[in-house]
């Protein structure tokens, strides 16, 4: 049996928002160490991986591994019906065909229970190899969201170049071109670690979608290495992280 309590529904809302634009259905794998979700988007260009460890939950119990096939649009509707500061408990039986969500207001004066039908999803699970990234950049998540939004006005593709001097985002299209450069700041709000310089091209539409996770964290980590997908990681409080991997565009 699974029983997992989030102190605030707001966090679950933010997690669902960070997932639902990129994947429509996915399996949430629950074990005694926490919850994991991994899915490719429909076009198999990107992959999202969510990890929530038990430490973050107000209460967490999972006696036997359980996989919950979720329709994210449906889950979004259910969490939307609750108040952000409600506590929410997810409950599922060992061989569940439904997930129970129980919302409880602050003073416990209002409770709301929803049963969500689960799906039987046959999903491929991909092994993500350990990677030594050549460039690791950390910046405010709002800055990254702003850059992705501004870049996508100019072109479908965004070129990311990273050197010891800084990180540069470039877009070149019919309308003209855009270049945004950020350098390491003494304030520490932008940090850039470079082993070797790298330039790669990515689909701006996907980068933009990843920034749906911005409300989850003030900070975002961007990792690049030659010939491997870009990693964009948002930490989630004491729970863990949401990671987005994006396959690069390569010369024909």
């Amino acid at each position: 049996m699974l029983e997992a309590r989030f102190g605030e529904t707001l966090l679950l809302k933010k997690i669902v928002d960070a997932l639902k634009e990129i994947i429509s259905q996915s399996t949430l794998d629950c074990t005694e160490t926490g919850m994991q979700l991994q899915s490719m988007d429909n076009s198999h260009v990107s992959l999202v991986a969510l990890s929530l460890q038990t430490e973050g939950f107000e209460k967490y119990r999972c006696d036997r591994n359980v996989s919950l096939g979720l329709d994210l649009k449906s889950l979004a509707k259910v969490v939307k019906s609750a108040s952000g500061d409600d506590a929410v408990t997810l409950t599922a039986a060992d061989k569940a065909d439904k997930l129970l969500l129980s919302f409880e207001s602050d003073n416990k004066s209002r409770t709301a229970d929803y049963e969500l039908k689960l799906l039987n999803l046959d999903q491929d699970h991909l092994g993500i190899p350990e990677t030594n990234y050549a460039c690791i950049v950390q910046m405010p998540s709002s800055e990254f969201a702003r850059i992705c939004r501004d870049m996508s006005m100019f072109s479908e593709s965004v070129v990311i170049s990273c050197t010891k001097q800084g990180i540069k985002f470039s877009a070149n299209g019919d309308m003209g071109s855009a270049n945004i450069k950020l350098s390491d700041t003494s304030k520490g709000d932008i940090t850039i670690d470079v082993d070797e310089p790298i330039t790669q091209s990515f689909a701006g539409r996907y980068l933009n979608t990843f920034t749906r996770a911005t409300p989850l964290s003030d900070r975002v980590k961007i990792c690049l290495a030659p010939d491997v997908p870009l990693l964009v990681e948002y930490p989630i409080e004491d729970y863990g992280y949401i990671r987005y991997y994006l396959a690069p565009k390569v010369d024909e």
Binding site: H44, Y245, K249
Partner: peptide
């Protein structure tokens, strides 16, 4: 001209 690669070509099925 650049081509979009697939994420599945980098990460192998388990």
């Amino acid at each position: 001209n650049r081509t979009q690669t697939s994420i599945a070509s980098y990460f192998k099925k388990e």
